[in-house]
Design a protein around this nucleic acid. Sequence first.
DNA 1: GTGGTCTAGACCACC
DNA 2: GTGGTCTAGACCACG
Lengths: 126, 126, 126, 126
Amino acid sequence: MISFDGFVLEDNVPIYLQIIGYVKRGIVAGSILDGDEMPSRRMLSAMLGVNPNTVQKSYAWLEEQGLVQSRTGAKSCVRVGRDTIPALRQELLGHSLKTMVEAMKQMGMTREEAQAAIASFWEVEE
Amino acid sequence: MISFDGFVLEDNVPIYLQIIGYVKRGIVAGSILDGDEMPSRRMLSAMLGVNPNTVQKSYAWLEEQGLVQSRTGAKSCVRVGRDTIPALRQELLGHSLKTMVEAMKQMGMTREEAQAAIASFWEVEE
Amino acid sequence: MISFDGFVLEDNVPIYLQIIGYVKRGIVAGSILDGDEMPSRRMLSAMLGVNPNTVQKSYAWLEEQGLVQSRTGAKSCVRVGRDTIPALRQELLGHSLKTMVEAMKQMGMTREEAQAAIASFWEVEE
Amino acid sequence: MISFDGFVLEDNVPIYLQIIGYVKRGIVAGSILDGDEMPSRRMLSAMLGVNPNTVQKSYAWLEEQGLVQSRTGAKSCVRVGRDTIPALRQELLGHSLKTMVEAMKQMGMTREEAQAAIASFWEVEE
DNA sequence: GTGGTCTAGACCACC
DNA sequence: GTGGTCTAGACCACG
């Protein structure tokens, strides 16, 4: 079952979108595979400390996008098609990386400084 | 007067926070200096295609933080104190870069891939 | 010329409406008569400490209602028709007194208490 | 739950201040007691025919003054401290009654006429 | 259902 | 023209 280890809530972004993003990134990374089981809505809401309705909203959205499949009485499971991963990678990187690069350039950073900043943050976490 | 060239609206983040971020990054970069004039609320709202009230909210917040000073009837202007820039740099990098690094690591990217991605996006813009 | 003695600015009511109300009440009281001259816009704005535009707005509204008449180059003067005073009295009392009575009743005051309160405030001013 | 019976919207005074005034007067009168439940924002906005956000502004202000307490998901309820009522009575009478007396005196009314006017309006409502 | 926030448009007072 | 406030409607998170 998918564990939400390392998931931290961020401000100023709707929680249900953060949950969706976490699943998408896991699929791209290959840590979430086709057929993997999602936690139950109430279990995930307990794990993350958010309201079950908020989790429900994420699941409904993921199902609408065809990324998870829910059957009554059974666990929801992830559906990863053949073209899913490239599409998601494109969507995730294209959007937020572009924004981040834009922001760093506006802050007057050079490419080298940006990469150094990435590197320094990378170390912190390891 | 401060031009908002290169400002593009992003989804799922409050517009007024995006405006605030743009100004902060400009101050850090040195492209926005102490005493510079902000565009009027109306003008900026027209430039960005958003409601004047949304811009007003940004300006009110910036004034509360002491980053701009408004006088009725006159243009609002930027106030940059001695310790402003380091504090802002810390705030801006610490928050969003950490989030981004976290996301890329969760996508299974290595540090080298992340830096390569940064580099590729950097070129696109130049 | 009409003096605005005793005029005090109140909060939470548009200033231009307060100026209009002052003139109306003076007409009802008979202290402002047909043909009386209004102060010039810039003089009144100086007397009250408000912006000339705000005074202008009052004058424009009063003229629209036929209560003052402006001619370019000459002082604006008050026009009081035959039915003006009863209509104004009705308008002024009917509206705000009703509101005040309603408020005092909602505060649990009896008629006698209300009249006593009126009396006490009356004395203060004399 | 607090009913807003007899509440009528007045022109030229901000709606949110009228709502605040209604609650304050009810507390002074004793018709609103410590612990009483406020209507929900949605319900009151429907009752008064105004926008939920306008009601929200009133409630936020009342909470800031410590007169109501809100918890998300639960009804907001009124908090009346020991010294609340005398302070409110002073505030409510001192402000609006003074304004009203001033206006009536400017209209040339005597104290007796004013009290008679109060009396006549009092009867109408009963 | 509850409270809270964000965006939108109109108005007011001022220069 | 400027800054500031009020009202309006939609959305989010929560019980």
